[in-house]
Structure formats: structure tokens, C-alpha cells
Design a protein around this nucleic acid. Structure first.
Lengths: 145, 145
DNA sequence: ATAATAGTAACTTTATTAGTTACATTTGAC
DNA sequence: GTCAAATGTAACTAATAAAGTTACTATTAT
């Protein structure tokens, strides 16, 4: 999954686990909510599991659960869990060209700084915050109540 | 071109225009440096031109040039010029699901804040800064001198 | 006039991503 | 113990997106 979409999907999954509030949810159930298939979901869950954001139980009637209270899961945690790649990727290098061959070195620090700058803002928002807002929206909306 | 790669490429182009220091460079010449073809380069240049970062001259012996002194071209200018899309894209929505159908609204503010947080750091670095560093690197390197 | 360039659209090829299938492993239920 | 249903992956296929190419018009220096 592309990094940008994966971030949204991972937030979706965490929020959905909280929303349903059950002990365990299967990847199949989550997949319905996200409108994709269970394997795609399990692939994202695998990354969240590596960072101990979710846990899983194998076997019949197994599934996934949040490993921490939602107050302790913030968007930066999730961002880091699912973003293996660099935010700004440098394409192929022309070693013959003095500019091209040194570009990666030149932009490394600014790009890193840009990514780090996102940290405080994303750290501030937790799944609990988003869930609180969601409850507020649903209370007003006749659609699902 | 993907947004992440386009940012690097756009920086590359600006830096290369400055490095060559000539009145005009053709998309063909730039393409050699970036190791792609002229049309791809012209597509990136078209976005930089819209924001008055580069200018172009049509006709034989035409080409591209930087419209401002490099001290006045910073990385945030370039980022804005080439990033039409949102940094974190939300995939398709399942309207049946209370979480999915409200997710976009919930993450909009945090995502926007994250993107805005990059601004000061990127604004601080100009093409002049990068060019200065590049000259320092090339002075030490026997490869291109 | 000619040649070389920008600007852009349309097309083709390539690469990436999404989705699917398959299967070993695990485990609760009977 | 057997079965059913789940995770965890790998391998494969289909769909999508991006890169690259071709082709064309408009422009302009020579």
C-alpha cells in the first residue's frame, strides 16, 4: 500500500477497533469497514503489530485488538509504524552530473527536518481524540443512530 | 511524476540552472542531468513556471531560466509549486460505515497541520544555500574539478 | 525557409499497487 | 481427536499509475 494511503488506513483500523469495542475483530470484519480484502488489512496490521499498537490472536475466533488504551496511541506512533520509506524520495542518480550525484546529500537534512517538524502536531492527536470527535458527529447525525 | 520524486526533481532543476549559470538551458540539456527525457522535465518546469520560479523562451535557441535570484527561491516555494495533491491521501470511502464515512473529516485538520509544520524549515533553505554547499563539496572533490 | 525549441496531447511501455488465491499454522468448539 | 475459522505469508494476477515516447503546433533565431 502506498505510504500516504496506508497512514489513513492505519488510523481507520485503530479507530474502528475502538468503535466496535469488542475484544477481538477479525481482519475480515475490518476489511468490510475499509472496503478492501482481509489480506490487505492484515498487511497493514502486521506493521502496527511490530510497533505494539495492535496485538493478534491466532486460531479460530482469533482476531486483532488494540494493545494500549486509545489515549496512548497518537498519530505519530501510527505514522512511524506504517512509513518505512522516506517522505521525499530521490529518484535515480546520474553519477556523471555534479548536481545529480550530490543532490541526495544536499537535501537529506532539509527533508529530515521537514518530516520531524510534523512530529509535535501528530503526537498531540490521539485515537481517543478522534474517537471523541466521531462520537460527537454520530450523535448529531440521524444516519447511524 | 509522483509528488515525492517531483519535489526532488524540481530542486534538482533549479540547482542545475544555477550551476550551469547560462542565460538559457533547454529541457534536453536538463534531461541529461536528471537522466530522463525532455518531456518529463518540461512537465515539471510547467509547474515551476506557473509559480514564477522559472521562465521560458520559445523558439530556436530558447530554453528555461530562473526568474528570481537563488536567494529568493526556497524549498517551500518549490514544494508548493509541485505538490498539487494532499500529502496524505485518503482512499475510497465506505458510506455504510460510520468510521469510514467520517474519517476524512476527522483527519483533515491534523493532516493539514502536519503539512503546515514543514513550512518554516523548508522556507529557511534556499537554492542559494544548497548551491553554496554544493560548491563546497565540489571544491574538495577531485572528481569534477 | 530552416532548424531548433517550447508546450502539450495522445499513446505505449513499464512499474507499482491492489487484490486474490493458496496454504501452513494455530486454536477454540464439539 | 476432528473440524472450522482464524492468522501469517508467499506467490500470483489484475488493475492502476507513472514514466517514457511520439507527434504535433507555435515560436523564433539564423
Amino acid at each position: 500500500m502506498k505510504a500516504d494511503a496506508k497512514f489513513s488506513t492505519a488510523i481507520h483500523i485503530c479507530l474502528y477497533l475502538q468503535y466496535r469495542g469488542e475484544k477481538l475483530l477479525s481482519s475480515k470484519e475490518i476489511a468490510v469497514s475499509v472496503d478492501t480484502n482481509p489480506v490487505v488489512i492484515r498487511r497493514v496490521l502486521a506493521e502496527l503489530r511490530k510497533k505494539d499498537i495492535v496485538g493478534s490472536v491466532a486460531g479460530s475466533s482469533g482476531g486483532f485488538y488494540l494493545m494500549r488504551p486509545v489515549e496512548k496511541i497518537n498519530l505519530w506512533d501510527i505514522y512511524q509504524a506504517v512509513n518505512d520509506r522516506e517522505l521525499f524520495h530521490r529518484p535515480k542518480v546520474n553519477e556523471e552530473c555534479p548536481v545529480s550525484s550530490n543532490l541526495a546529500q544536499l537535501v537529506k537534512a532539509p527533508f529530515q527536518a521537514a518530516e520531524n517538524a510534523m512530529q509535535p502536531g501528530l503526537k498531540k492527536i490521539t485515537i481517543s481524540d478522534l474517537y471523541g470527535q466521531l462520537k460527537g458527529i454520530l450523535k448529531k447525525s440521524p444516519k447511524f443512530c
